[in-house]
Simulated scan of single mutants.
Amino acid sequence: MQEFVDRSHLNASTIEAWVKAEWLIADRPGHQFSEQDLARARLIQDLKGDLGVNDEGIALVLYLLDQLYGLRCLLRDIQAMRTTDVTRSH
């Protein structure tokens, strides 16, 4: 947790609030965060600070980004299946 606090330049109470709001989700109990979590925290900081987005807006932006990420993963899986099918048919 301390490493994430240092790298994100957030205080522990802010991180706890964002975890409670499900804006950040630790990989494992004890708040072990990934590089993706750090990028997400920086995005939240930009949305709140630089752009003045309120909490409801941040929740919506994060939801839409998560949906987009899920669709990208699905598209990548479909492309991998197509590649496998083409390889098998030759």
Rank of each mutant, 00 (worst) to 15 (best):
L60V: 12
L74E: 08
D66I: 02
G49V: 12
Q45S: 09
W23M: 05
D50W: 04
G70I: 04
R88E: 04
E56V: 15
L75E: 09
D37R: 02
E35G: 06
N54T: 09
G49F: 07
Y69W: 11
D85P: 00
G52A: 04
L38D: 07
A12M: 11
T84Y: 14
I78W: 05
A26M: 04
N11T: 08
E56M: 13
R72M: 12
K48L: 14
E56F: 11
E3S: 07
L74D: 05
R7S: 09
I44Y: 00
G30Q: 07
I58A: 01
E56L: 15
L75C: 07
I58N: 04
L68N: 14
G70R: 06
I25F: 00
I44K: 00
K48F: 10
I15P: 02
D66K: 06
L47W: 05
L47P: 02
L24K: 02
G70A: 13
F33H: 08
H90Q: 05
M81F: 14
H90T: 07
T84L: 15
D37Q: 04
L24V: 01
G70T: 04
V19W: 00
D77G: 05
L60T: 13
L74R: 06
A12K: 12
T83R: 13
G52F: 04
Q2W: 02
L60R: 09
L64G: 03
D66N: 11
V5G: 06
M81Q: 14
I15R: 00
L60C: 10
N54Y: 08
W18N: 13
G52S: 05
V61Y: 12
G49Y: 09
L71W: 05
L65Y: 12
W23G: 06
Q32V: 05
Q36R: 11
L68H: 15
F4D: 06
M81L: 15
L51Y: 02
E56Q: 13
M81Y: 15
L60A: 12
D27R: 14
V19G: 03
R42M: 06
L75R: 11
D66R: 10
E35V: 07
T87M: 15
M1W: 09
L71R: 05
I44H: 01
W23F: 08
W23Q: 06
T14N: 08
H31L: 13
L62M: 12
A21H: 03
W18E: 12
P29L: 00
E35W: 06
R7E: 08
E3A: 06
D85Y: 07
A12S: 13
A80Y: 14
Q2E: 09
R82Q: 15
Q45I: 10
R82I: 15
R72E: 14
N54H: 09
E16C: 01
A17G: 09
I25W: 00
L60D: 05
R82F: 15
F4Q: 05
